[in-house]
């Protein structure tokens, strides 16, 4: 299964980016094979408004079923939730260790957003 993790770099050893909409990259990892795909979020990072919503839409497009990040705002959460993507917050460490943590069942999925909107 595919999970999306916000990242400061382009590979599995990069640190998790705690931001979602304004994360540098979003890495979509296959939990079985560890094959991954990188979404370059840099354009979105400087977006005037709706960065979280756009990033959420991109995550849905890649077929990820789970998003793991630091903070996910309410609008992004609503977008992901509508597409049936589950969200886990408060991730730290590298992308690789986050995948391990996920496989070990260390994340709980939130029912709501944990960061206030910026508008």
């Amino acid at each position: 299964m595919k999970i999306a993790i916000t990242s400061t770099g382009k590979d599995l050893d990069a640190q998790v980016d705690p931001r979602f909409g304004r994360a540098a990259y979003i890495i979509v990892v296959d939990t079985d094979t560890l094959d991954f795909e990188v979404i370059d979020n840099s354009e979105n990072k400087n977006a005037f408004k709706g960065a979280g919503i756009t990033a959420a839409s991109a995550v849905c497009d890649k077929g990820a079923q789970v998003l793991i990040t630091g903070f996910c705002g309410p609008n992004a959460f609503k977008t992901l939730d509508s597409a049936g993507v589950k969200v886990a917050n408060d991730a730290t460490g590298t992308v690789r260790s986050t995948v391990e943590d996920y496989k070990a069942g260390k994340f709980t999925f939130s029912d709501s957003a944990n960061a206030e909107g910026h508008w």
């Binding site: 977006a47 005037f48 408004k49 709706g50 960065a51 979280g52 919503i53 756009t54 959420a56 839409s57 849905c60 497009d61 609008n75 609503k78 977008t79 992901l80 509508s82 597409a83 049936g84 993507v85 508008w119």
Partner: peptide
Amino acid sequence: CKKCMEICRYGAIAVAGKAVVTFPEL
């Protein structure tokens, strides 16, 4: 097709997988 999402300057409409989400308050 995402055309609606691309034109909206306010992030008020988004395609998410099979769903299209609107944010009336935005």
